[in-house]
Amino acid sequence: MKQKKLFFRKFKDRLIRLFSAGAVLLATGAMIWILFTVFQKGRDCLNLSFFLHPSKPFGMADGGIANALIGTVLITLGAAVIAVPPALLAGIYLSEYKDHQKFASFLRFCANVMMGMPSILVGLFVYMLLVVPSGNFSGFAGSVALAIIMFPVIMRTTEDMLSMVPYALRESALALGMTRTRTTLRIVCVSAKQGLLTGILLSLSRVSGETAPLLFTAMFADTWPTAYFTEPTANMPVLITEYATNSPFESMHTAGWGAAMAVTILVLAINLVTRILFREKKHVR
């Protein structure tokens, strides 16, 4: 009797481990399938002119993605310029100044709400905030939308990273006669430098593939991104969307896959390099 019960327990264990292995296989299999498809279908676009020429209107041959590539870099860097300084300051406030705990936890709650905010709503918000008053779509509006997405993410990682700096460091600096500001900037932030950079780069890699917030802000254009502040600016995610859904031409689909491959490589490269350069420090809770 006892023997039988043990058998069943072991059998159940085996079964669940099999299921676990299957789940892992499925998850990694999905990843490999997706990456394989992207690279296989995008391979045809791997030539220099594809990366050097601007996109052309529907139906014209020899379109490239150069303008969208530059546009995406512009919009993403613009977003970083807008979001990083205030987000770092906000993170510093949450971690270093503990005199209004109620207010701080309210802010943390707001940040969580914003992190869970559907990205298309950010697009709507910036549309009403910038596009309607100024009367035109612009790359700048796209940057602002992405910046709003980055802001709470960087703020929370900054707080986490600064909280991990030991108190002895702050106390020694203050004891030497440094001001509070100098202690924070020169001692605390510098010792958490790696963590801060990781947070910023990972959030950058995340927003560089965001599509929904750009649909109504940066929009798309077949021109070089010369008027970042006043005109629709070409960018990769919207280009992919346009080519994949609004075009009956096979060549457009191929170009779409090429663009998809470029975005995937860009995002994964930032991600991988960040993770390798700054090995994640495990959170201590």
Binding site: T37, E210, T264, V267
Partner: peptide, 24 residues
């Protein structure tokens, strides 16, 4: 290795998933 693979899978932009869904 598997952990990193899962992290990378989480980093792929959603528009790529959409395209994969549409064409594959």
């Amino acid at each position: 290795v598997l952990g990193h693979a899962i992290d990378l899978l989480a980093a792929i932009p959603s528009v790529i998933y959409g395209m994969f869904g549409l064409f594959v």
